[in-house]
């Protein structure tokens, strides 16, 4: 890249200004950010920019099912720019609405799982001994517990609802982060700076969360951004099984897996466009996230 190679400290900058200007240096990252903003906008403004409310089943007419992109609806009121699915939902509106659910569920569950996992993993690594063994065996159990079984149990005990999807997703994912955080923290625990901090008699929580945590973050962030895609797919699986969002209010992940069976049949748009929408969101998050991580990392300062 030939963009902006001037010295960074041409004039005094606040840290925030530095981060912004560093970030903007990378055109790919800016492009990623645009994609993220677009996805979030579409999700937030879904009711305003959709031509149809795809969750209102009384508004669906089976006659219009599987219309290819660009078809007029049979009552002549709207045009299905991206076609309709097997239930005659306008794909474009369905994608807008579905994006809301998927992004919400994906972000919240991954952040919560990350938070829980990091705490458990760091505590286990720092304390060692029995605490470590105890926490890690719980992690082993959670890792071996299949998501579908968790979902089915939650479904029959708690009933359905979006909050139950979140619970299921967090339950399934936190252990993965805990294991990863512990791996990273085990290395940090024996480094000089931790020993120094211990000698200074800093309280353990301070050592763990102020000193060790930042050094463990790079690999955890990589896993978290990637897990986001996995969480969205998992949400689709769980909803498909009946736990979670009602089938008449599909998330993006559900739209993709519903469309899966149409892939060979020629009605490509039913799976293709939701797939593209998801890919846009994920790619945007990762492009922006990659660079943001580099910019935020003090060690990468030039």
């Amino acid at each position: 890249m030939t963009v902006a190679l001037e010295p960074v400290a041409a004039k005094p900058q606040t840290p925030f200004q530095r981060i912004v200007s560093d970030f903007c240096e990378n055109r790919l990252a800016v492009f990623g950010l645009v994609l993220v903003v677009l996805s979030i906008f579409v999700a937030a403004a879904a009711p305003l920019i959709s031509t149809q409310n795809p969750f209102d089943i009384a508004g669906l007419d089976l006659l219009d099912a599987k219309s290819p992109p660009g078809t007029m609806s049979s009552d002549g009121k709207i045009t299905y720019w991206l076609g309709t699915d097997g239930q005659a939902r306008d794909m474009m509106s369905a994608i807008f609405y579905g994006m809301r659910i998927s992004l919400f569920v994906g972000f919240v569950s991954v952040l919560a799982a990350l938070a829980i996992g990091v705490v458990v993993g760091l505590v286990a690594a720092y304390a060692g001994g029995r605490t470590d063994a105890f926490l890690m065996r719980i992690v082993d159990i959670m890792l071996s517990f299949p998501a579908i079984l968790v979902a089915l149990i939650l479904l029959s005990v708690l009933g359905k609802g979006i909050d139950k999807v979140l619970i299921a997703l967090i339950l399934v994912q936190w252990a993965y982060f805990a294991r990863a955080a512990r791996g990273a923290a085990l290395v940090e625990r024996n480094k000089e700076y931790v020993e120094a901090a211990t000698c200074l008699a800093l309280p353990p929580w301070r050592i763990v969360f102020r000193h060790m945590l930042p050094n463990c973050m790079p690999s955890l962030i990589v896993i978290a951004t990637i897990t986001l895609a996995r969480a969205i797919a998992l949400e689709a699986t769980l909803s498909f099984l009946g736990v979670g969002v009602p089938v008449t209010q599909p998330s993006l992940g559900m739209l993709i897996s519903n469309g899966f069976e149409f892939l060979l049949s020629g009605s490509y748009w039913i799976s293709f466009f939701p797939g593209v929408a998801l890919a846009i969101a994920i790619i945007g998050i990762n492009l922006a996230g990659d660079h943001l991580r580099d910019v935020l990392n003090p060690r990468n300062l030039r």
Binding site: L155, G242, P246
Partner: peptide, 14 residues
Amino acid sequence: KTEVDAAAPPVFFK
């Protein structure tokens, strides 16, 4: 006004 309650077969049968 109809709400669809879909469930995996074991839960449905129960």
